[in-house]
Design a protein around this nucleic acid. Sequence first.
DNA 1: CTTTTCAGTTTCTATATGAAACCTAGTAGA
DNA 2: TCTACTAGGTTTCATATAGAAACTGAAAAG
Lengths: 159, 159
Amino acid sequence: MSRAEQLREVFSDCGISAALEVVGERWSFLILRGAFNGLRHFEEFQTNLGIARNILSNRLGRLVEHGILRRDPDPADRRKVTYRLTEKGLDLLPVLLALRQWGERWISGHPSNPVLVDRYTRQPIAPITVQAADGRPLSLREMEWVDRVEIEGPDEAAA
Amino acid sequence: MSRAEQLREVFSDCGISAALEVVGERWSFLILRGAFNGLRHFEEFQTNLGIARNILSNRLGRLVEHGILRRDPDPADRRKVTYRLTEKGLDLLPVLLALRQWGERWISGHPSNPVLVDRYTRQPIAPITVQAADGRPLSLREMEWVDRVEIEGPDEAAA
DNA sequence: CTTTTCAGTTTCTATATGAAACCTAGTAGA
DNA sequence: TCTACTAGGTTTCATATAGAAACTGAAAAG
């Protein structure tokens, strides 16, 4: 495979583009942040985020379609609908936190509210970092991009 | 402060919205991914990502404005311009990796190429996780959102 | 009954994205 | 030198997406 073909493959078949297809539109992250902070209902999202109703409707629909939020009509009050994070949605927490920590460090310059703490020690969580398989924190100089084939061997990579 | 006022503050003054102002537009993440994977020149980004030239121009400009990329004219060939990540840009790596790992786990279903490895052990990096201050991994049940005031005391929070 | 709430949809305008052609300075080759 | 080509854009115009505001319909509250 030529270098150019290789690169094109790299850029089309990538977890990042796959993820962005689903949560990359404007407002999606902020809606998820709202959900992590306890927002459950259409009107709550709308008034707290200040998002246009038609866009909110569209985004909630997409997030539900992709299995990131679950949409449950409230049996007690049949006007109400509850949106809550699925396991797949909850698993986006590290992404949200990494983005938030970066924004705090480099843009807003201060920690935002509320803070996520360890329930038992009451201490804020640690900064999200890149670590080796054994848990050692890795700096950029200690990492390297390698082709999958080089570490797995050609047979596994083909599978 | 009323509950409603509190929430509105939470949603305007947040690291995530701050971060999204800068890197939340369509293509920004993919351009950064390209930069992490060694893309340096306008034409490289354009052909590898398949992005429209005017949009690429606009995004590179914004990323440079915000200090995420540095733009250096090449002294050897004065047609060429080199874009490279600044420290601020490099610090987005955890965000990119968390997003990528999520996409691999929940959307594409397989690891993408190339793989980021520990330079010495040649082992792929660990999944990005949320950890307590002492490094213990935390599950969602072990965390809690608390108001900053509650852990810092009112005086510090006001500062 | 009448009013209000909730979760949307519709309509219309403004903004962002994208494809393609064009431009300008600089380089390479004959 | 003259010509062709390259790198990094900009311009133009069509299309798609976002947003504000008014509207709807079912259900609940008074």
